[in-house]
Design a binder for these strands. Structure first.
Lengths: 204, 204
DNA sequence: CTCACAACTTGCGTGTCACGCACATAGTGC
DNA sequence: GCACTATGTGCGTGACACGCAAGTTGTGAG
């Protein structure tokens, strides 16, 4: 994930991926949620400085390119949780990790609005947020000492957390909202994190 | 939702929608997850007894057609919860409602596997399961006396429930699993329903 | 009952798109 | 430096989503 950990090929690849994703999101924002069809693949590729064929080597749909940033961010959820101190209670660790991951820096409202409120992007946006579940589930399993293969708890909790983040984002985008995203996140996560992992034996 | 409540037009429309959706899912299952590209729109339309143009009047992508049944089922989640007795505790009501909705009849494993384990369908599948959230959130808000516009609790809880159902389905599909889907659902939902609403009125 | 209107289906045409293939170029490891 | 592999690019092809207009069927008013 750090540049130092990747060779030149991987760094270039990541750079063009981000360039294409950034160009796609920027052009989409310019056209607004109703003019998404006007954003041609050729435009995105040109704006990113690559050929349209190369664009297709990285993404198989416009939606995927536009949501790439959100997807990349979600992939880091597991690492974010693992970076919390091991003796921190689960709900505090998850809350702190997600706030750090999703509010550093504060999200771009225009971009998030484009992703979350454009019907054509709904599927990809859900995919992007859901990508946090796998890594998160593993990190939660490691922290709680549960077995992800046999116990539903880590995966269910991860899905609940990812869903809470999504709901927090939706409410944060609502007009007339003055709260910071961090506050919304804390509220949403508190609805989901009060249940503790099962202590004794449970059906698996 | 009952046929009696719809006029002829609406009934015909629902019938063709289901015919197209059923044909799409059936053909997709026949080709398997790796041969999805071989299922042509023309084939689906022909199998459903309509023109390919009509197919496009109902669905704007193959994925949407294939996942139509799952989407329709999710839309009924709110109604399922509302049909539970008002004095039942929230977690019992939700569990009973979801088990009734998703295990009557027991889901078709081939169909669910196609929908949940085919990468090209991932976005649509998530959309389909997520469609339960809106109606569910309203029903939960009504039951707990919370305001969906001000309080995050109903939406977060609905997202958590929808996520738990999805995770339960994923585990149910894993090879070597002998449990019934109802059992998986109960386990998954128990991980999510133990948290209580933050403050204010709730049922019971 | 009949007639006008609205909803729906269908065929056709068009602009995009995803992707296979082959070749050129750049990074990597010996 | 020299093969070797990964990646970028141009071209061609088949499929698809959707606008448009004409034909067909359900619906409701007079």
């Amino acid at each position: 994930m750090n540049d130092d950990a990747m060779d030149l090929r991987a760094r270039n690849r990541q750079a063009t991926r981000e360039a294409i994703g950034h160009a796609a999101l920027r052009l989409a924002i310019e056209q607004g949620p109703h003019g998404l069809a006007l954003v041609r693949v050729q435009d995105i590729a040109t704006a990113a400085g690559v050929s349209s064929r190369t664009y297709n080597n990285y993404f198989s749909s416009r939606a995927e390119a536009i949501c790439a940033f959100q997807a990349d961010q979600s992939r880091r959820a597991g690492q974010a949780l693992r970076s919390r101190p091991a003796d921190e209670p689960l709900h505090e660790a998850v809350t702190a990790a997600m706030i750090e991951l999703y509010t550093d820096p504060e999200p771009d409202k225009a971009g998030l609005r484009m992703i979350m409120q454009t019907p054509e992007l709904e599927g990809e946006a859900l995919k992007a947020f859901t990508m946090a579940e796998g890594p998160l589930a593993e990190a939660i399993a490691a922290r709680t000492g549960t077995d992800p293969g046999r116990d539903l708890f880590p995966a269910v909790k991860a899905a609940a957390v990812a869903g809470a983040i999504r709901v927090a984002g939706r409410h944060w985008l609502e007009p007339g909202n003055t709260e910071s995203f961090a506050t919304m996140l804390r509220s949403a996560l508190s609805c989901v994190l009060l249940a503790e992992p099962p202590e004794g034996p449970r059906d698996r």
